[in-house]
Nucleic acid binder design. Structure first.
Length: 463
RNA sequence: UCCUCGAUAGCUCAACGGUAGAGCAAUCGGCUGUUAACCGAUAGGUUGUAGGUUCGAAUCCUACUCGGGGAGCCA
């Protein structure tokens, strides 16, 4: 007999009602009395459980009554309308085969656990409601991102995870090496001789695919990367991880305004897609994780994102300087408290801050007419803070070289990056979206460690 | 990395210098429609680690480890 997925039953009950079905799943909870009992069964196909009713006529009734949480079953029975209030239908079991028993020391209970506790068992937490919802949404969000870009003709580029350019400037890097740590080859001045290493030079894990993807942008026009990124920063916050996923689109013949339009379209598209394709999960988040979630997301889909220049933002923040522990001044980077004030108090929706002072931004960002600011943009969202960072890139070779000289960067290290300006360079622009931050924003989860299956953070690489 | 708070039963917590407790989970029993089922009973502990103060330390002090929150860095 063919097996039926619970998702199909719930999406299309009239097709299955009063029919004999066979299904597999795991026990979420058992409530039994003398002559009958209830099992909530989840088969992983959908967030929702199916209630199975079993009666003492079954040959293994007493074993079933004592089933421990997370035991795996094969159940055969008839789908009937349920007299209970909390579910429209249930499976009246005719045969229940126990495929895998659980153990009495199974740590997950049918009550709420703290996320801290669940982090200590990353191998079991996907079985809980919250993590089941988070990781199905993560999968759906990832698909929606691909769908968005593919529908618009973007080419998906796989940029390398191992990089030879050691000065991408976006943070501390993890070294990649096959050298014997206990016996490092030394050069003339006592420094490590990387010519004997696997790649014959110093290599690291990438902190961004941007420089590489820019080269493909100059061939395909509209491209994006979507993959893991590594930062060895000793950051201990709910928003940072050593390994995370980033989406980096790059578009040619386009400027900063086009870039922001793309970012806004993408966010709205993903939100709509997730609301439509993960209704049970999103309902759960709105009910148990963040009661303002639906209002917040609808507010975003329905409104135009705000836009403000860095200089305007500073003027605005200066008027309320007494609210901050760090007063603002033109030339300073915005502190978290300033960003939150802008997006949560002033605009109460996502806001792009653009045209930052060149001295606090990366070398590749395009210098504005004023010679003082660059065409950068950060998208700030309430609750999470910076979710996207991007810029129009400096396409003028002489200006770019001048910038690198001013910053003391070695041009030889970037020879191929500079050559794409030399051969038919054109204005282009792109941004980086932190996938985990987007998922936090979409689910109301407040710690990045709870939206990555096996999070890597300082002093933590178990599992 | 800095500031701050914390670590007691499997989980969530109480005990605040004088014999370590409760609810839930587990185990056993009861219950004919449950919904975090309910009712009764049983069992469960070197109080994060290492030192110190004290007649006596879960409780006070020091260091360390790990975790939460905040900051910096950023996505």
């Amino acid at each position: 007999m063919e097996k039926t997925l619970i998702k199909k039953i719930i999406r299309n009950p009239q097709e299955y009602i009063n029919k004999r079905l066979k299904l597999n799943g795991w026990v979420k909870t058992v409530r039994s009395s003398k002559a009958f009992g209830f099992i909530e069964l989840n088969d992983g196909s959908i967030f929702t459980n199916l209630q199975v009713v079993f009666e003492e006529g079954l040959s293994n009734f007493s074993e079933i009554s004592k089933l421990l949480i997370s035991s795996s079953l094969e159940v055969e029975g008839i789908l009937v309308e349920s007299p209970g209030a909390k579910q429209p239908f249930e499976l009246k079991a005719e045969k229940i085969e126990i495929l895998g028993t659980s153990s009495q020391d199974y740590p997950l209970q049918k009550k709420r656990h703290s996320f801290e506790f669940l982090r200590s068992m990353a191998h079991l937490r996907p079985r809980t409601n919250t993590f089941s919802a988070v990781f199905r949404v993560r999968s759906i969000v990832s698909y929606a991102i691909h769908k968005f870009f593919q529908e618009r003709g973007f080419v998906y580029v796989h940029t390398p995870l191992i990089t030879g350019s050691d000065a991408e400037g976006a943070g501390e890097m993890f070294r990649v090496s096959t050298l014997d740590l206990a016996n490092l080859p030394k050069g003339e001045k006592g420094s490590i001789d990387f010519s004997q290493d696997f790649f014959g030079k110093e290599t690291n894990l990438t902190v961004s695919g941007q420089l590489n993807v820019e080269t493909y942008c100059m061939a395909f026009n509209r491209v994006y990367t979507f993959g893991p990124t590594f930062r060895a920063e000793n950051s201990n916050t709910p928003r940072h991880a050593a390994e995370f996923w980033m989406v980096e689109p790059e578009i040619a013949f386009a400027d900063l305004q086009d870039n922001m339009a793309l970012a806004e379209d993408m966010l709205k598209y993903v939100i709509n897609y997730v609301l439509e394709n993960a209704p049970e999960e999103m309902e759960f988040f709105n009910k148990f994780i963040d009661k303002t979630l639906f209002n917040r997301l609808k507010n975003i889909v329905d409104s135009d994102f705000a836009q403000i220049t860095y200089t305007e933002a500073i003027d605005l923040l200066k008027k309320v300087n007494d609210k901050f522990s760090y007063p603002v001044e033109w030339g300073c980077d915005l502190q978290t408290e300033h960003e939150r004030y802008l997006t949560e108090k002033v605009f109460q929706k996502p806001v792009f801050v653009i045209n930052y002072p060149k001295d606090i931004k990366a070398f590749y960002m395009r210098l504005n007419e004023d010679d003082n600011t660059v065409a950068a943009m950060d998208l700030l969202v309430p609750g999470v803070g910076e979710i996207i960072g991007g810029s129009q890139r400096e396409e003028r070779l002489d200006v770019l070289e001048k910038r690198m000289e001013d910053l003391g960067l070695n041009k030889e290290d970037y020879w191929w990056y500079l050559e794409i300006r030399k051969y038919g360079g054109t204005k282009h622009t792109g941004y980086g979206l932190g996938l985990e931050r987007l998922i936090m924003y979409l689910t109301g989860m407040t710690n990045i460690r709870d939206v990555i299956s096996f999070p890597r953070t300082p002093k933590n690489a178990e599992f």
